[in-house]
Amino acid sequence: MGLLHVIKSSPLFTELYDDEIEEIIKNCNVRCLEANEYLFQENDAGDDLFIILTGELLIIKGGVVITKFAKGELLGELVLINDQQRTTSCTANVYTEVLILNNKMIFGFYAKKPRLFSILMMNIARMLAQRLKKTTIEMKNLTEQLKKVS
């Protein structure tokens, strides 16, 4: 499948074979967003995670752009850890297409293919750890800058 090389670059699918990735995504949907169209808004209920196929998404909190997500990146993974209310808003910066993965579909692999499920969970944990590490560094930098200013 032509999309495979975009999706394979996502950290969610690290250490998975191509046929395993195809099995995961074969029943997924794709959503197309115009520039400035919202994918989801803060406090919306949701049980989907998204992989960006083309374009760019902005994460917004309190009217401030926190970060950007580009092609191949995954977002919304907190729904897998029982957090089904969106904590931020997400809007398309340019024309964007996202692959929608439903958490029920992913949890369905627990019974059918536990090996696949455990690899997915491991990858989610790694991603969250990376983001936590990145946030810690940013917090440290901001704290230092605040100290300099004050």
């Binding site: 499948m1 999309l3 090389h5 997924c28 949907n29 794709v30 959503r31 197309c32 967003l33 196929l53």
Partner: peptide, 23 residues
């Protein structure tokens, strides 16, 4: 709904080839 397509339709429809160009 044009904004949401199944992956099969996305790959096999008009978007499939356009995505190939983007890739």
């Amino acid at each position: 709904k044009e904004t949401i397509l199944s992956l099969q339709d996305y790959v096999g429809g008009k978007s499939g080839f356009l995505t190939n160009i983007q890739s």
